[in-house]
Simulated assay, not measured.
Amino acid sequence: MSNFATSIDVRTLERGSKKDIIFEAFEKLNLDEKMELINDHDPRPLYQYFMSKVPEKFKWEYLEQGPEVWRIVITKK
């Protein structure tokens, strides 16, 4: 059993809709719930987006950092 409330494989999402889908999933999390994000590159711009929108309401933690797969846990604080 996973300890993630949701898991999103960004590699399967259409370009242009990714950020909205990810942020919407984050907003649905309860406090201290975690979501897993899977991507084929470092989603650093997404981290910057979270910093601009909810700077003190999330925790970003890398589980895997490439070179082919990046896995990030985003926790709602």
Rank of each mutant, 00 (worst) to 15 (best):
N39C: 07
N3H: 02
N30E: 14
S7W: 00
T75D: 11
K34H: 10
D40Y: 07
G66V: 04
Y47S: 03
Q48V: 05
K19H: 04
L46H: 14
S17T: 15
N39M: 04
T75H: 11
D42I: 10
I72G: 02
Q65N: 07
S2H: 08
L63E: 14
P67M: 04
K18A: 07
P45V: 06
F50Y: 15
N39I: 01
G16P: 08
L46V: 09
E64F: 03
E14K: 07
F4H: 01
I22R: 01
E27K: 15
E14M: 05
L37A: 06
R44F: 11
S17D: 09
K77F: 15
E68Q: 10
G16Y: 14
D42C: 09
I74R: 04
K77H: 15
F4I: 06
K34W: 02
L46T: 14
G16V: 09
P45K: 02
K76D: 09
A25W: 01
D40H: 05
F26H: 14
K19V: 02
F26C: 12
K59Y: 15
H41I: 14
M51D: 10
L46K: 13
G16L: 11
N30G: 15
I22D: 02
I38N: 03
E68S: 10
E14G: 04
E14Y: 02
F23K: 06
I38S: 04
Y49R: 10
F23R: 03
V54I: 07
E36H: 05
D9P: 03
Y62D: 06
G16D: 15
L29Q: 08
Q48S: 12
I8V: 08
F26E: 10
N3I: 01
F58T: 00
L63H: 12
Y62H: 08
D40Q: 06
T12N: 02
K57A: 13
D9E: 05
N30P: 02
S52H: 11
G66L: 03
N39G: 04
V54T: 03
I8H: 01
E27Y: 05
S52Y: 06
D20P: 01
A5C: 04
T75C: 12
S2V: 01
T12W: 01
I74M: 13
R11C: 13
M35P: 00
D9F: 08
F58R: 02
E56G: 09
S17Y: 08
K19L: 05
P45G: 04
A5S: 04
T75I: 13
T12Q: 06
E27S: 11
F4Y: 08
E68P: 02
A25G: 05
M1N: 01
F23G: 03
L31F: 15
E33V: 06
P45D: 04
E36K: 11
P55D: 09
I21G: 04
R71M: 08
D9N: 10
T75S: 14
I38T: 12
N39Q: 07
